[in-house]
Design a protein around this nucleic acid. Sequence first.
RNA 1: GGUGAGGUAGCUCAGCUGGUUAGAGCACGGCACUCAUAAUGCCGGGGUCGAGGGUUCGAGUCCCUCUCUCACCA
Length: 689
Amino acid sequence: MTERRRMLVTSALPYANGPIHLGYVLEAVQTDVWVRFQKLRGHECYYVCADDTHGTPIMLKAQAEGVTPEQLIDLVNVEHQRDLADMLIGFDNFGSTHSAENKAVCERMYLILRDGGHIERRSVRQAYDDDAKMFLPDRYVKGICPVCATADQYGDSCEHCGSTYTPADLKSPISVVSGTPPVWRESEHYFFRLSSFEQSLNKWVKSGAVQAGVARKLEEWFSQGLRDWDISRDSPYFGFEIPDAPGKYFYVWFDAPIGYLGSLTQLCARTNLKFDDFLAADSTAELHHFIGKDILYFHTLFWPAVLQAAGMRRPTAVHAHGFLTINGQKMSKSRGTFITARRYLQSFPPEYLRYYFAAKLGPGIDDLDLNLDEFTTRLNSDIVGKLVNIASRCAGFITKNHAGSMARALPEPALYAEFVTAGKAIAEAYETRDTAGAIRDIMALADRANQYIDLKKPWTLAKQPENAAEVQAICTQGLNLFRVLMIYLQPVLPVMAAKSRHFFREQNWTWTDAAAPLLGTAINPYEPLATRLDAKQVAQLVEPEAPQTAPKAAPVTAPVSHQGGASDAASLAAAAAVEGNMISIDEFLRVDLRVAKILGADLVTGADKLLKLRLDVGELGTREIFAGIRGAYDPAALVGRLIVVVANLEPRKMRFGVSEGMMLAAGPGGKDIFVLSPDSGAAPGMRVK
RNA sequence: GGUGAGGUAGCUCAGCUGGUUAGAGCACGGCACUCAUAAUGCCGGGGUCGAGGGUUCGAGUCCCUCUCUCACCA
């Protein structure tokens, strides 16, 4: 092995306005597997992360819930840490960007930037909500696209025609916060002079700091020339106030990556590590960032430039990965494919998902699909059928016939050597983040092990007492092959590896422990290391959650509040109650209500409450829905009527077909159902709001 | 729209700098086995490698055009 490397590794910071979902878990698993691999190899590797806690969305969410931003992020932090710990993500430190440590690093770096002449002040004209008394980020202004006239578009770009513009270009703009038209105000902003780093960044990018595909992509940004970066926001804003500028705050994207360093500072404070050993300009430590491809710009341009300007080293590498899709579709709350880590963990062991992700993760930025059927078969086949089976089929002979004692020599040292040799390629694959390749190789070895046992047939030999030694030898060989595989898989399956160590009565594994077989020692009785997945249960991950009898449960662990005191607890309880009833305008706008025209209405045989309706929903095309209104309406009388439907309700499979929406109606049921209809003039497809 | 990635067996993918009859796992069919969590082993069916053109003695692998999918756009 090469010399001992010292490295600092990060995952992107999860935003503190919602729960950890499987998309983030993908990133955390990729990073964690890599980190655990490095540690297993004997390198000095630290993994830090933090919650990303600042910015307008958090401020508004806290407002909507009637709590302070601090209370909100403390609550979320507890949940995030718990979810990620349960996913076996082994952070060396998980902090928050809203920490004293981070504030100190931010201010220190900013002052160096300022004194180095990298900060410039400019006046900016920006949308201002006079009602809410705040400046509006682009995404908080909506209006009609100035290019294609599509309604309801964000202030930065049009989802329909893709053109980009500023909020000032929108026709009939309104503030998402108050619903009133914004006014335009001048304000002084602080800019980081990114443009002056163009050359050195270009060099850095080409030095191998990013994947080849990413470098080509960045080429585009370089060719357009780098624009300076607005790092300030006006009050009210939840964040850190800029030291020499009262009422001005650091933009969340300025203090977020610095959050890596704030977290490192915390780690240093409780260990004997030194910050400068990792960050000084001449540091020989490695710095690796794992991120999603959506935040490349921040990590490959802003961040290295800021580090350089602050007199620090730049990242060794930024590793971007693709997005997670579920059953081939984007994660979406309305489709039920927005799966939180907590939801997954309620039913399944963390290592199953870790294994599945690892088996599909490559070094590129391709998206990765979580196909639930494949997940089931893959786990059952690879882990239970192949891997664990090796130990399971060998252990019995040793335990029953040989008092748990393994043989003193391997009958097939060449086969064992083959497994050891394969470790080189597997390590190389892990190192280059081709974990899919590593898993492929490992599973090929698992096949070899099963083939060997099948060929030797210890169960047949065991029928003749004189073959006892041979049976012991064969099973010792099998178990040792299994042991090698578990060492190789420890970065992915830390708990299963720990259980295997217990089985072999070993304390600790390093990568090189695979080189020498375990001979003449005793083993513990074999206990199942993994059980099979049930496809039906897995499918439930994307089905609507069972209705909860109790309102959303309060967090079990009380948040540690900065201020403390009973009033906090009380206001939180009040907030929770309010949360149950009130929704923000944003939440309401997520419900896509549309005017629809009934094209046809039919009785459904076998269902005495349902009618099958065929609807014209204008630009959304025709839909088929099932509505429980048969007791109140005659199908013929419905045809031609205009109604209101929820257009983005997830399709629901019923016994009679799929219902692609829901019509709005009032009343207790039976004969007393009253369908809502718009006044004349409304046309199918119009949005109701 | 711009840019990037990709279209290889039913599914998920591997095929390095072009070179013998294109591979693996899962799924499917058959046989064997019964130590193992209906696990395992052996055999088999199945692909004109998105389409067309070009370079070459030879292309899934290089070039061009087209087409489809996906992603990103401070």
